[in-house]
Design a protein around this nucleic acid. Structure first.
Lengths: 338, 338
DNA sequence: CCAAAGCTTGCACACGTGCGCAATGCCCGT
DNA sequence: ACGGGCATTGCGCACGTGTGCAAGCTTTGG
């Protein structure tokens, strides 16, 4: 039984032959709003079902001016916040009859270009860049080809792209306010060495806001944006003299590592000895061991907005849309009245 | 400036015109192993670059017997283990020149069928089912059409599908052994109400192994497979008399919730009062607040195996491949010599 | 009973590509 | 010089689909 396994998808022609109608009738049966009589429609559906026919979306995408494919460019999917964006985006896209093609850029900007090329090659209707910095020239090509390009948390506004961002500055200012109201004297901000625009914006805004308030904030940047980096940041901050008592971590993941090290390696009590504020509101921030006070990114709203952008087919002028990050009060910052 | 935004991808013909060659030459330039002289190749590449040309993979997939698309059917992407599988799978697929199309089934088995239909419609080379139970008839259609179908942690061996599984029974037996060696007298196993075959296999094997060892194990099944369910399971187990002192949680996520509730709500010390064993070895299991002793699923090896399956084009007889889950020793089980 | 109008249906073209086939040009050995 | 072999090139077909157009059929109104 060494039969050759070759592709043998059933085509509309085969369905038409079995149903005794023309191929057009088959095509119309599976096209919304096309004119088919109920009788032939039933014949076609019956034949299609018994043959296991499914419309070839590759061929359909060749004819129509949309492939119903949306490319998601992302790196580091294991990061809880990214995973959540993926979760919401994929199911939301399906609800508007599109399908997600996920391209993992593995971090380096070189492969972001590769990702955009894949988006072009598969004639994606749109490309959503969740992480990484795309080459401007490729973005131009995408837009010139009629693709939509959605950039999330990028500073550089590329001509013709849609931009979503979170108001990092406001959140960072509010973090300073919360920590100082809790009575914290020595502030610090923990970030990573990644040059992600949103992370840089957060720690820069934090130090600026601290300076405005007459306080000084030490900045620590460690490795990648991970739990381990949070641990390492705590080691650096608490090994030196003049250790901070109020810390803003630009990411929940950093905050959780930071808290664990502060507690278990340095015996600090949170929020008594140390107040911590995070950013993202990942699921783990609400775990009993952490109960991290943090800023929630409105992931669902952002995805809704993206879905609306992709559904609307009018060539509206690309606008930058800013979302507010709202504080989620838990137990790592002392309450107002100290 | 109300110009209509219409799809205007550049085709091979346009490149050919600009380069002064035939369209075939353009096609061959972008086809591996085709015969093109260095001179025309350069002309074509130059023209393609200045026009922003990218091969249309939809059209290519129409001709060839492979689309280079692999469909990943998954639900609940935020679950750390699923996110890790996605992370590894997407990047591994890219390394063998395939691209991942992710279909989120949102849990219900109805949409698993929808997912398989999408895989058929986009003429995917293969479909990898990471979660959910696909309808047998649709799987048959996929295989009859020449698609590969890879099922992960499914019991029912569907004809023609490739099956990967983890040796849940062996791990569950070893969990019993570890807990009894640590001196635990009253065993329990925490699972969810989901009918995922692998989870059911784990808790069934655990109770069976416990019975073999002359011990009895209480089984608690709570809601979905989540952190919150672990919390709830702990509440149920420790509110009753005869509380367990050795618990196997069929998932790390359950274990972490279970530990947090045991510690913070019931004041138990781990591993002194209570030993806990998990399964999956997600990143959070290694966090300082948990340091969970668990069984590691060999995600990378499984993905390598999938990649090998998809690269090989021989129609080898579908075989069920079982991977061993190896114990990762951390700090939630008392060491051997008590 | 007839004309007009509406609904269905089949034909044929187009989408962008890979590849088989034949033709052309070039190089080399005798 | 000449024939044979080889690399390169262009032509044209095929892939599976959506859709405009015209023809056929059915219904309706008078």
């Amino acid at each position: 039984m060494s039969e050759i396994r070759s592709r043998s998808f059933v085509s509309a022609q085969m369905v038409a032959d079995l149903a005794g109608v023309s191929r057009s009738a088959v095509s119309r049966t599976f096209t919304d709003g096309a004119s088919v009589s109920e009788a032939t429609r039933r014949k076609v559906l019956h034949a299609a079902d018994s043959l296991g026919y499914h419309v070839n979306h590759l061929a359909r995408g060749l004819i129509q001016d949309r492939s119903n494919i949306v490319c998601l460019v992302v790196s580091d999917v294991t990061t809880p916040f990214r995973a959540r964006m993926l979760e919401i985006l994929t199911s939301r896209l399906q609800s508007i009859d599109k399908v997600a093609m996920v391209i993992n850029t593995g971090g380096d900007s070189d492969s972001v270009s590769t990702a955009l090329q894949q988006a072009l090659r598969f004639r994606a209707d749109a490309t959503v860049v969740l992480s990484g910095t795309p080459a401007a020239s490729l973005v131009e090509t995408c837009i010139a080809s009629g693709q939509r390009v959605v950039l999330i948390n990028r500073d550089d506004h590329l001509e013709g792209s849609e931009n979503l961002a979170v108001d990092n500055e406001a959140a960072a200012r509010e973090a300073v306010f919360l920590l100082r109201r809790a009575g914290c004297r020595r502030l610090a901000v923990v970030s990573s060495e990644a040059d992600t625009p949103s992370l840089v914006a957060r720690h820069q805004a934090f130090t600026a806001a601290a300076a405005d308030a007459g306080a000084e904030a030490t900045l620590v940047r460690v490795g990648p944006t991970s739990y381990a980096s949070g641990v390492e940041a705590a080691r650096r901050l608490f090994s030196r003299s003049n250790a901070p008592d109020g810390v803003f971590c630009v990411t929940d993941l950093l905050a959780l590592g930071f808290m664990d090290a502060a507690r278990h390696e340095f015996g600090l009590a949170i929020p008594r000895d140390l107040c911590v504020v995070g950013f993202d509101d990942i699921e783990q921030a609400n775990w009993e061991s952490y109960k991290l006070t943090t800023f929630a990114q409105p992931a669902a709203e952002m995805v809704d907005h993206i879905a609306a952008l992709l559904s609307a087919d009018n060539a509206e002028p690309a606008e930058r849309r800013v979302f507010a990050a709202t504080p989620v009060w838990r137990r790592t910052v002392r309450p107002n009245a100290l």
